[in-house]
Nucleic acid binder design. Structure first.
Length: 580
RNA sequence: GGCCCCGUAGCUCAGCUGGAUAGAGCAGCGGACUUCUAAUCCGCAGGUCGCAGGUUCGAAUCCUGCCGGGGUCGCCA
């Protein structure tokens, strides 16, 4: 259950009552009415700004209007107190009968607590990673991978129908370079001396096994062929090998995409031509000239007429070219076809997780979506900033030598997927992130991964002990008497648990999965505080032999906290460990 | 030069799309362990929210202009 939805209904009902009486204009906009938990618990459990937002349309002073709203809310038995404070806030304290209902609902939902139907089954496509199939994933891909995966889970948890998608850039010049690089390794596998890897080819050692596999499969027969003949063979072979490797890398992080979409299929199936025909029919393209790029010297700039998409009609800065000077299609042309394909599959939200270096690309993607969807779909881009690697406070030096970079696998192998996934969500996506190999495995307060998992493990530890100390009854699902939870530390935790569904919805709306990570740290802090309070005040402990009713209630309470932690951790893709 | 992102405690960062006295952690100082896991907790101290205007009941948050940092700027992907 979501207590904020519950209160919103009450408030809106009161507002309707005032509208019926002519106090507020019937057409007054109530969309800005907020229902939230006040920062200061002294202000009550829930607060609303309704009076302040509607004071102007009502032609009243906020506090006077608040009086009228509060009068209508006061009748409600679910509210213990309704106060007006400050400039016109209406603060509500939930009656003591309310919290038990919340906790009952949590117990009933278990680890599904937090789920909502906000998305109403809306189809959402989340495209993330989409790294070129030319080598293993490196740390730079790591953040977007985790971010996208957590966002997908978050959207799913809030009632969206999510497709996780990976766009394979298997049509550009970079895969020809891959093919030539692999061919070199093929010759090497056949015993030829290939010397230094020429500049412009991929020197990475990960292509050595690809060369060996090519040798096994084709023997020496590719050696006698002309490049134009062997290149497609080697290219397909290498791309398949690279994608297998990338899938393995992602699997190490427990990431699995439902759809791997090949750029090449857009070309091969004629979908780009179809798209262009479509654009022409709707007068969205034309032959024209672009101004030269500003800011940097354009030595090879050549003014020419080319096929342009009218992206500036849809919010972009300039129109964008669809064809290169040699007549082949630009990457952008394929992207237009790709967006068209996504829209044809019925998605209402196209989410793109990109590196910060793609910031300049967002406007044109949105322009395409606007032009093709006619406003039926929304294109949302989230840019992930760089991850800086440290070890014991010292930056990890990355050699400029090509091919020598820290791979995603290196990081996951060293610290484990849980740590990587949690840490990648401890910053807003648009802020740079520092990742220190030593700090993230530290078992201390300033390591959030540990701190949250420790809270979960501690709860599990108590539940284990309870079975021994209280006997089998402790494990039974006896109806807890929630009114026995009265300590401020306990109440703080209950309120925190009540916030959770709202946090998820806000995070999903904003496409900001990091909010889940921050919430879990707060929830864990509340729990650790209660735990330690039990040290000074033994009557606050969870297991009190001789007080079975209190013990069973507190154990149930611990389960409720655990459900909340487990749900959040699952969205983040982090294992809720049961002992440490 | 155009566009995008960022600027909040000494440090690293939150701040619930405009709410009340701006919050955490680290570092500093002072406390709590014969433990339901002290791997934790409690307290103190720390701020012109980059600067200057504007919008309104109310601004860290929105608009404008500066300052500083990063990214990006046909025919790469």
């Amino acid at each position: 259950m979501n207590i904020f939805h519950h209160i919103r209904e009450k408030v809106l009902k009161a507002l309707d009552g005032l509208k019926a009486r002519g106090v507020i204009p019937v057409d007054a906009d109530t969309s800005r009415v907020s229902i939230e938990a006040p920062r200061d618990p002294a202000h009550g459990d829930v607060t609303t700004n309704a009076a302040m937002v509607l004071a102007r349309p009502a032609g009243m002073r906020p506090r006077d209007l608040a009086e009228k709203i509060a009068a209508l809310l006061g009748d409600d038995t679910g509210l213990e107190a309704v106060d007006i404070a400050g400039p016109g806030f209406i603060n509500m304290r939930l009656s003591s009968a309310f919290w038990p209902r919340l906790l009952d609902a949590v117990m009933e939902q278990g680890e599904a607590y937090g789920r909502s139907d906000m998305g109403k089954g809306e189809k959402v496509n989340v495209e993330y990673v989409s790294a070129n199939p030319t080598g293993p994933l490196h740390v730079g891909h790591c953040r977007g991978a985790v971010f996208g995966d957590a966002l997908a889970a978050l959207l799913e948890e809030t009632g969206h129908e999510v497709t996780r998608e990976y766009y394979i850039n298997d049509a550009g010049a970079q895969v020809d370079v891959l093919a030539r690089s692999a061919f070199l390794r093929y010759r090497q596998a056949l015993g030829q001396d290939i010397g230094e890897i020429p500049a412009g080819l991929y020197p990475g050692e990960y292509l050595i096994p690809v060369g060996q596999a090519l040798a096994r499969e084709h023997g020496e027969k590719l050696l006698d062929m002309a490049e134009e003949d062997w290149l497609p063979i080697v290219r397909d072979f290498a791309i398949t090998a690279m994608m297998d490797m990338i899938r393995d890398d992602l699997a190490a992080l427990n990431i699995r995409h439902e759809v791997f979409f090949s750029e090449r299929t857009l070309h091969e199936k004629g979908l780009i031509e179809d798209t262009l025909a479509d654009l022409r029919a709707r007068d969205l393209v034309y032959m024209g000239r672009l101004p030269p790029p500003k800011g940097k010297p354009a030595e090879d700039w050549e003014d020419r007429e080319q096929l342009l998409f009218r992206s500036s009609d849809f919010g972009d800065d300039i129109d964008r070219p669809l064809a290169k000077s040699d007549g082949s299609y630009t990457y952008f042309a394929a992207d237009v076809a790709y967006i068209r394909d996504k829209l044809s599959r019925g998605f209402r939200q196209l989410v793109y997780i990109l590196g910060a270096d793609h910031g300049g690309y967002v406007k044109r993607l949105q322009a395409v979506n606007k032009a093709l969807s006619g406003g039926n779909a929304e294109l949302i881009a989230r840019l992930c900033q760089l991850v800086k690697l440290y070890r014991g406070g010292q930056p990890v030096r990355m050699s400029k030598r090509a091919g020598d970079f820290v791979t995603l696998r290196d990081v996951v192998d060293e610290v484990g997927p849980d740590v990587v996934r949690f840490m990648m969500l401890t910053r807003r996506n648009d802020a740079p992130l520092d990742f220190d190999f030593e700090k993230v495995t530290e078992q201390s307060r300033d390591n959030p991964v540990f701190y949250v998992q420790y809270a979960h493990a501690r709860i599990c530890s108590v539940l284990r002990n309870a079975a021994q100390e209280l006997g089998e009854k402790a494990a039974s699902a006896a109806a807890p008497d929630w009114t026995l939870l009265t300590d401020p530390a306990e109440m703080a935790l209950i309120r925190r648990i009540g916030e959770y569904p709202r946090v998820l919805e806000a995070a999903a709306r904003a496409h900001e999965p990091h909010r889940v990570a921050f919430y879990l740290q707060e929830l864990a802090a509340d729990f650790h505080a209660l735990w330690n309070k039990g040290k000074e005040l033994p009557q606050l402990r969870f297991i009190l032999p001789g007080q079975m009713d209190v013990s069973l209630t507190r154990l149930a309470f611990l389960r409720a906290i655990r459900y909340c932690l487990a749900n959040g951790l699952r969205i983040m893709g982090v294992t809720p460990v049961t002992e440490m």
